[in-house]
Design a protein around this nucleic acid. Sequence first.
DNA 1: CTGTTAGCGCTTTCAA
DNA 2: TTGAAAGCGCTAACAG
Lengths: 332, 332
Amino acid sequence: MSETRPSSIRQIADRLGVSTATVSNALRGKGRVSPALTEQIRAEADRLSYVPDHTARALRTGKSNTVGLLVPNIGQPLFPTFAQAIERAAKQRGLAVLIGDSQGDPQQQDFEIRNMIARGVDALIVIPTRGTTVMPESVAVPVAVIDSAVTGGNVAASDHREGGRKIAQHLLALGHDKLLVLAGPENALVASERVGGICEIFRSAGIEPTLTHSDATFEAGCALGRELDVTRFTACAAAYDALAIGFALAVRERGCRIPADLSLTGFDDLMWAQIVSPPLTTVRQDLEAVAVHALSFVAGETSTSRIFPTELVVRQSTARPSAIAQGDTNAE
Amino acid sequence: MSETRPSSIRQIADRLGVSTATVSNALRGKGRVSPALTEQIRAEADRLSYVPDHTARALRTGKSNTVGLLVPNIGQPLFPTFAQAIERAAKQRGLAVLIGDSQGDPQQQDFEIRNMIARGVDALIVIPTRGTTVMPESVAVPVAVIDSAVTGGNVAASDHREGGRKIAQHLLALGHDKLLVLAGPENALVASERVGGICEIFRSAGIEPTLTHSDATFEAGCALGRELDVTRFTACAAAYDALAIGFALAVRERGCRIPADLSLTGFDDLMWAQIVSPPLTTVRQDLEAVAVHALSFVAGETSTSRIFPTELVVRQSTARPSAIAQGDTNAE
DNA sequence: CTGTTAGCGCTTTCAA
DNA sequence: TTGAAAGCGCTAACAG
């Protein structure tokens, strides 16, 4: 019921008989205003509980202190986590975040980019939808593309290939020699980097992994787990945790025990990875670092592209291939 | 490298020798402009790939077509899901969503509310942080509070109490008579509604459940699962899935089998609920409906508060209390 | 030190 | 049917 008609700089100026410019200066400590007057203005400002109008300021200065974050699909569990990291990094700079969801659709992605620019974001952080590239020079504001080291115009990303290598080395060290790779979508650069890293290591050990492509979802993992003949492999490496988890559930129903019959690894270290049984060996990205660098890039503080190391998280879904599973199996 | 200095209404006007007002009118189909001229203006506009400046328009009209969404903690898995529902509902109205995170801190919540208003949001959708209330009349824009039926000023919410009743009826029907309730935080209204519903039904069957309070997190669930003596109960109902899942993992380590030794239920139907083993019996909210109503409320289309029914999702974590678990137990 | 002036790009009376 | 003019609230020159 309060008459909260927001008060303007004008009101303060009028009540104190000074000009709006002086009020503006005083409040922002910009031009030189006498301490005494500054004090008075301050006092009056919060007597009126004055809050600067962001819109007007944005129009005048051309800066909105807002960044747009465009994710491919916020339904996939990694993206909220990532959005949170961006939020934190943005808040530290006094920036707000306008989020948009491409919903896996390149057209929608283009639309959102335009929309956000029209809404006056100062910069854009884009995780491109599969199979798309975002040309920074075609956009009117600084853009940080976050995807993979091999993505054109990429500004910050995890070293997915290195993550793949770590997984492979871990599996190899355990003694695995028949590897199935759930490679995810064919046109996802992130996935192909991960898979590339895995294959690289296995091939240099003289082993050729078997690849299967599919969506990156939990459901796709289930489907694969129901169809594939897992007895031919000692280990399975998935390009995404969601894929691995779906796969795990499906193969378990078919009597395949993890890790006794088959070792399994994922990628991303979703919260899920800890809670499935057995807990999943996976690779964790340093999302915080990626977010901070992306913000720093769009803020113009750096113009370098950075690739961040990943971390292997060993849990209970991987083990040595058991003699039992290899030879004298006789489980009911 | 392109000189993308965004073109304004002025440029179009100048090139065509008409006034800015006419251009504005033509482009929006408002005032009456001759079809011929309208056509010309349209053509010129997209020749210059004109995009209206949202900021200027917002300043002039006082509407930004942006809503603020304030969540208590976007790290908790339900909130991204909910944010997505809001996003969808907002997009249908041509609104963008500015998200903010209170991080569980009432002060932060206040700050964010002010901040969003200063940034010119037309409306606010607030899921209050535990123990706080948001007074709509103290805020300068329409606010939709989403929490629970008993929250002051609540505009849209699921019927958490009814959800609790459904859980209780299900458990009772199975024959459970010794119930442990993981009641979540004491000052969370949502949790107390859920728990209230559960207790209501059990009491009317002459059974007094045992309550334990804790955080609503996975970790808190683990801790409880390690500490509590579960042999005294036939079933455990948690106020949140995360709590239930943490609990499940911890009690399993102690040799308690679900549902053979103990039935377990959660609340929220997180994606997790399907993937844990055994899959969790839980209650699903209709987030989409809640989101749509909240948007419709802040758009001024309705002024009623609505409570939406929930759905019991029965999975494998609940079963009849087994004779074994009741009497002749002799597990080590 | 402080005030005046001139817009940012748009919409909206009000006249022509 | 069109145009001129007046701002929304703020900041950035430039004067005083």
